[in-house]
């Protein structure tokens, strides 16, 4: 008789304990899930994809890179800011330009064109890139990133940046 009540009591206790764990687990999930989504999902902001005029095509010499500076709009959280940006632009052939993003693909330093050695040189860890952006030496893991670019009415238009695949 006594044993039966004791068993009943411990069964009830186990039920209460599992209910407590269950409810707190549920509450934690119901708070944690929205928090995770809120912090990890990218904002629904539409990307500003626009073509920006960076200069005139006829001012470039064939196969001589030139750093062109232009302003572009960037969506930054709840603001749209107008940032100064640059691109290394090379006229590969008449009517065809390539625009490289101005950061080294290793750690993001600004590189420049070495006129004598005819290569792009990053001063941070001496990565070098050839005229077409491919890595010739140093730690850079892949070729220079490129902006989409085209020529219209003699103007150089710069679009979105595209990550390069490999070296």
């Amino acid at each position: 008789m006594l044993q039966a009540t004791e068993e009943k009591a411990s069964g009830r206790r186990a039920l209460l304990v599992s209910a407590i764990y269950g409810v707190w687990g549920l509450v934690a999930a119901a708070l944690g899930a929205p928090a995770a989504v809120y912090l990890l999902f990218p904002p629904r902001t539409k990307k500003v994809e626009e073509w920006i005029e960076a200069g005139r095509a006829d001012s470039l010499r064939l196969r001589v890179p030139e750093e062109l500076v232009f302003r572009r709009n960037r969506v930054d959280g709840w603001k749209v800011t107008s940032d100064k940006t640059s691109a290394w632009v090379v006229k590969m052939a008449p009517g065809h330009v390539v625009a490289f993003a101005p950061q080294c693909t290793h750690l993001g330093c600004a590189y420049h064109w070495d006129e004598q050695k005819q290569q792009f040189l990053c001063p941070c860890h001496t990565s070098t890139f050839s005229l077409d952006g491919s890595v010739t030496s140093g730690p850079a893991p892949r070729a220079l990133d490129r902006f989409e670019s085209r020529i219209a009415d003699g103007k150089i238009l710069i679009g979105a940046v595209r990550r390069s695949g490999h070296a």
Binding site: P34, Y38, F41, G77, K79
Partner: peptide, 23 residues
């Protein structure tokens, strides 16, 4: 200058933003 815009960003652009503010 920015409180209103950032809150609007939370409730219109961020997934779960309405939920967090609602709670």
């Amino acid at each position: 200058g920015e409180a209103y815009n950032s809150l609007k960003y939370i409730v219109t652009e961020l997934t779960g933003g309405v939920m967090v503010r609602g709670l």
